[in-house]
Amino acid sequence: MWYRGGIGHWSWLLHRLTGVGVLLFLCLHILDTSLIALGPQHYNAIMGVYRLPLFRVLEVGLVASVLFHALNGVRIILIDVWVDLTRIHRLLFQIQMACFTLVMMPVAWIMLRPLLVQ
């Protein structure tokens, strides 16, 4: 249902989306590693697909999803444990996003550099 909520609403929505995204990746990961049971050629074939540039970009998205989900989870835990933090929950979200950006910038650069410098 659509609702024009504030920071808490959108961070909750993003938390859910990143959580589902990471879960889908885990299912895919279990599936691709289980291909080894059918023979090394199948496993190598799927690994070859993962080395495509598009998948490198998707991997950056995966790291971003895990990082956002983790940081947002920590923010929620902090608020649940110290309820007075509810007064500054917007500031906490801004700090969370600053941490997210600080970590993601070098990580994205390291992961995408092989594609960019080729």
Binding site: Y3, G5, G6, I7, G8, H9, W12, I76, I79, D80, T86, H89
Partner: peptide, 9 residues
């Protein structure tokens, strides 16, 4: 409750 803050807003 998922600590979403819509209620407070």
């Amino acid at each position: 409750c998922r600590t979403i803050f819509n209620c407070t807003d």
